[in-house]
Design a protein around this nucleic acid. Structure first.
Lengths: 226, 226, 226, 226
DNA sequence: CATGAATGAGCGTTCATTCAT
DNA sequence: TATGAATGAACGCTCATTCAT
């Protein structure tokens, strides 16, 4: 899975009851994060939400950091679950990716919470290298799924865009549009922008491949902060 | 004179010295946020960074919330400053907007800190309605600038995209790509995705206007969280 | 278990040791209040007096308010303990009530501290509705005791005063005289006033019942402040 | 007037404006005390209420203690003003004192605030010797007024009670009854108790003098706390 | 007469964590 | 497996007061 090193080792899940309790806490953590944000997710708040004693949170997960690291994986699972139910019946790359995006966008609108939590983690990860590894693992899974969808359809190489670039483009666009949605709600402009994005997506995946000779940007590579 | 109970905007900036001190603190807050993230920006940490006493932070800004509200405006100023220096010599909408984006992207790579801080605030704003208003004001200024660029060039109405949608699209793309940059650094895929985005941008701004009849998505509007 | 958010009654008294510690703190609070008054009873001061750490006070009682609410009951217990030891051997209402008052007054003079604390709480309660409820509960117990004394003796209905009014009268007189005592010490005038009060008390309880036709005061009822 | 040593020396009242400002602050202090109680009357709160800057409070009164000492006198003035308007036309001691008490009780019910403030000060004074001197000065003026009323009427020496004891009794009864009023509002029992008190008052002031031979209480004198 | 700046101390509270059963 | 007790540190904030102009 590649969830980063040191994970899931200190978690006590010997018995069924233990597993259930741990699950309860993780779920509570998720809810608290979606309601109060990263900073507001104190052990006390989480314990209250889960209906257990504060001490139990540390007991099951060792520390707050470990709990959150564990939660990141759960958020990833959530996001994946929402997407994996899409039928793979697309006949063309364009159709397959478009169906994927449609499904994804519908999910974002129906249940934005996982995304709200995700962006909270992302923002925190910008200044926290450890967390970044875990959060990027979510992004990796996300991209894997997109990539798989593109490949699963016919003639994946006939697009005008390279696959890696396309994957990034879709991922970035989804992130950007989702942020818009979370911050402003679904305005008319946003609706239209989504339509336009999909049109571009379709054209990019069906058009004849172009030469990608020009590279306008030739600066030094930028490393992640931290 | 007495600002009355509640001290609505209790920022003390009567004297030059006071103004300088307040500025010192705001700048320190900015640095701390970029290094430690939203949660790590405690009054103590900020005061240490500014070289003043913790008590003075409250004195000048009344409360941590007020300080951060004040800082949001400052971050907006920063972002705008970086962009406003772009020459407006673009002859076509495509050229003007492309120059804008180039400049913007260069800035992001040269000095990602303001963006890191911005995303920290955005993430917090997702679960904090008050903050959201302030942060969205930054986005508004950003969009105004993009809009102005589009309009300042000739034949703005000849594009295949409506202006509002275009503005959103650019804004969302920049956000999405910047997040990629902050989280992964400037990978080869990202470089290529940027090139592809610019190509799309150019084509969108030069192509003959299309009919935008189709609306594939017709779900209920989604409101911002919170 | 989880007491749920808000921790309604967060007093931890699970173990014997815990009970003892909580008791220690309550007693210390009482001493501090009697020495420093309501405002002077800070958590730090209380913790020092109890020989525990400030943090433990919050741990056992949740908040300062909760601690004081808890203390109010304790003060009530103290006051009741002092009184409940009076023999009930009074043969007439007059004798019973007089014995009660004598005992009470002796107590006030021997150990005025509970009364000093009580008046501190009363004064605070005048501007704090929550506290008023708790403090009035003490008064209720006090009156219950007086009432019980009156009834336990023979011929309670032969007095010239209605029982409720008599109870109030005794209660008010004790409060007024005690305030005098606390503020000026036992002056000669006060001694004499006490004697006079007792004489009135006796006459009121032995005299033939009068008609209580006249109501000189007919104003609008006054509600407690707050 | 005997308001205690060290009073009114540091107060800046050179100009008319200064006097007005000082007055404004004192009045604000009074209002804050009646609303928030002794502990809640911080300089900041008072300044807000007065519509001046916090610094001005210290400027005019030197310190919080000095301000409160000054306020005590003001509360006394308030209480006296309310009473001094009573006509002295009583022909007998009984009538004069009864008229006084009636007027007083009406005042308490119409405007309990001065009394609420007064009891706040009293409670604080129990544990603060300095303040006690000031507050007792109010009590002295109060008693002086009662005494004067008794004497101003005919045949003051014909009562069954000694004058000093009578003064204390009235004062204590008023305090006790007022506390009842502030804590419970004007209940039916309280109304009746007031009527009974007045009846006793009348009888005490008209009845033939008795021998006051018996002193049942012979304990050691009690000094004020502190 | 009036103000802005600054101070050290302390407030009540919450933090994540550890110890001992 | 679960819990109560305890901890040191830090939180944001307010206190009354002093200094300098």
């Amino acid at each position: 899975m590649g969830l980063g090193p040191g994970l899931e080792n200190s978690i006590k899940r010997s018995t069924d009851h233990g597993r259930r309790q741990a699950d309860l806490i993780i779920e509570a953590t998720f809810r608290v994060l979606s309601k109060e944000g990263y900073g507001g997710a104190s052990l006390q708040r989480i314990a209250d939400e889960a209906g257990v004693q504060k001490r139990m949170v540390s007991y099951y997960f060792g520390s707050r950091k470990a709990l959150l690291r564990n939660l990141v994986a759960r958020v990833g699972d959530r996001l994946m679950e929402q997407l994996s139910s899409v039928s793979e019946a697309g006949t063309s790359p364009a159709e397959a990716v478009e169906a994927l995006f449609d499904h994804l966008w519908t999910q974002v609108k129906e249940d934005p919470q996982p995304y709200a939590v995700y962006f909270g983690l992302v923002a925190e990860a910008v200044t926290d290298g450890d967390l970044r590894l875990s959060v990027n693992a979510i992004g990796d899974r996300y991209r894997d799924l997109i990539r798989h969808r593109i490949r699963s359809s016919a003639a994946p190489d006939s697009t005008s865009l390279s696959e890696p670039s396309l994957v990034i483009a879709i991922s970035a666009a989804v992130q950007g549009l989702t942020l818009e949605l979370l911050m402003r709600g679904e305005t008319e402009e946003l609706r239209q922008a989504v339509v336009d994005f999909k049109r571009w997506l379709r054209s990019a995946l069906t058009a004849a491949p172009e030469l990608e000779a020009d590279r306008e940007l030739d600066c030094d590579p930028v490393e992640p902060l931290g």
